[in-house]
Structures are given as structure tokens and as C-alpha cells.
């Protein structure tokens, strides 16, 4: 379980996260959504330890993440834009991440194989197309069987087949009891995949509950209409 307590984060005068309190339920898929610049990526980066909150604490399985880096062995992450060292081969990149992690859960090459990445092992990261790089990015997130998956816009930049494959994989891993956090702009993806929803607007959590609950509460036909009405009622 991930517990976020009173997180504040500012960049200069810009107050990006405003006293965010949140619990991410274990074993469920939680979508974090909000307009551009609402603080989604900042929230995810603070969980991953890429950014440090000004105040507040984050706990992963009841351990304060500011106290050590061991918790990152439990997390597989897929950043929004896949950026890798240009002059490393795909195979070397995988070896490197594998070398740096504890690997106590073994290796899962399912997504890697369904993306046919075996043929790309000897290519330099810098020579790959955007889509292939994104597939490497996705395969790498799942590869070391992490208990928590943090996927920032997982379907962005993927062709329809790869996109369906990663969605199938997300659902499969959820059935295996993994905790999954997704951000996405594609609301139909979220409606299809996730059970819980966190809606952030200007650094504040406006809604935190189930996707179904929100749609019923607002009485709309789908998530897109529901989010639109939620934004309107908040003066956006």
C-alpha cells in the first residue's frame, strides 16, 4: 500500500502539489487523472523519489521512502517519455537494470516476447524508433516482477496492437494481485482498466473513489462526460 501524507511541492512561486493526502489501495488499479499541469507527473515523480517533497511524507508498505531506496525494488515504473542512454544496446540496458535490482521475484519476459523485442537486442537505443523505444520502456517496467507498477501514460505512442497488449498485461498483473497506478489522458482506457480514480486539479485532490461511483454520482453516461461536468463544477 502507498500512503501519502500532507505532501506540498513548489517550483519557485508555482505551488504544484497542495497538501495532498492519499492512500493507494493494494491489489487495485488506480488511475490518476487531471488536466495538463495539474500535478500528476509531479506526484508520480515524488513517489519514485525523482523529486523531493517540500513537506509531507510518503510510505510504501508502511516504510517512509525518505529513509532509504530499498522500496524501489518493489516498484516498476514506465516514464511518460522513454529516454535512455543513446549508445547502449537494448540488451545492455536490460542487463544494467537487471544488475541494479534485487531480482528476488525472478524475471517476466512475457511483454518483452509479445513485443518481439528479441530481434532488437543488439540495436543501440538511439537508433530505435519512438514506438519501439516505448515498447522497451513498457517491457522493462514489468520485467522484474515488481509488486507495484507505476505507469505514466502507458499507451501513449504505441500502435493499437501494442496498446492492446499492454492493457491485457495490466489486467493480467492486476489479477495476480499487483498494485497499479496509471495516468492517462485517454479516458476510455481508464474506464476499461481501473477501479479507483484520483482526480487532481491545480495540485488538489478533487475526487478519490471508484470510477463507477463517480459516474453514478454525477449521473452521466461515461467517464468523459463525468470528468467534463466535474471540471465545470470546479470552475474550469
Amino acid at each position: 500500500m502507498i500512503r501519502i501524507e500532507g505532501i506540498n511541492k513548489s517550483f519557485g512561486k508555482l505551488h504544484v502539489l497542495k497538501d495532498v493526502n492519499l492512500e493507494i489501495e493494494s491489489g487495485k488499479i488506480t488511475a490518476v487523472i487531471g488536466p495538463n499541469g495539474s500535478g500528476k507527473t509531479t506526484l508520480i515523480k515524488t513517489i519514485l523519489g525523482l523529486m523531493k517533497p517540500d513537506t509531507g511524507k510518503i510510505f510504501v508498505d508502511d516504510k517512509d521512502i525518505s529513509k532509504g531506496v530499498e522500496y524501489k525494488n518493489k516498484i516498476g515504473s514506465m516514464p511518460q517519455i522513454a529516454r535512455f542512454p543513446e549508445n547502449l544496446r537494448v540488451g545492455e540496458l536490460i542487463d544494467m537494470v537487471s544488475d541494479l535490482r534485487s531480482r528476488k521475484n525472478g524475471v517476466d519476459k512475457e511483454l518483452f516476447e509479445s513485443y518481439n523485442l528479441d530481434n532488437e537486442l543488439n540495436k543501440m537505443m538511439g537508433t530505435l524508433s519512438g514506438g519501439t523505444r516505448q515498447r522497451v520502456n513498457a517491457a522493462l517496467a514489468f520485467m522484474f516482477k515488481p509488486e507495484i507498477l507505476i505507469l505514466d501514460e502507458p499507451t501513449a505512442g504505441l500502435d493499437p496492437i501494442s496498446s492492446s497488449e499492454i492493457k491485457d498485461k495490466i489486467q493480467k498483473e492486476n489479477k495476480n494481485g499487483k498494485t497499479i497506478i496509471i495516468t492517462s489522458h485517454i479516458l476510455s482506457d481508464i474506464e476499461e482498466l481501473s477501479e479507483n480514480l484520483v482526480f487532481i486539479l491545480e495540485g488538489k485532490i478533487i475526487y478519490n473513489g471508484t470510477v463507477k461511483g463517480l459516474i453514478e454520482e454525477k449521473g452521466k453516461i461515461n467517464l468523459e462526460r463525468t470528468i467534463a461536468s466535474l471540471m465545470e463544477s470546479n470552475g474550469k
Binding site: G49, K72, N73, S77, R83, F84, L100
Partner: peptide, 13 residues
Amino acid sequence: SREFTEMLLAQPI
């Protein structure tokens, strides 16, 4: 190598 750094920071290092 910003990307290299960011990627490594998401690992337990």
C-alpha cells in the same frame, strides 16, 4: 545524460 540519470534514479540506487 539526464535521461540516464532519471532512469537510474527510479532504480534502487
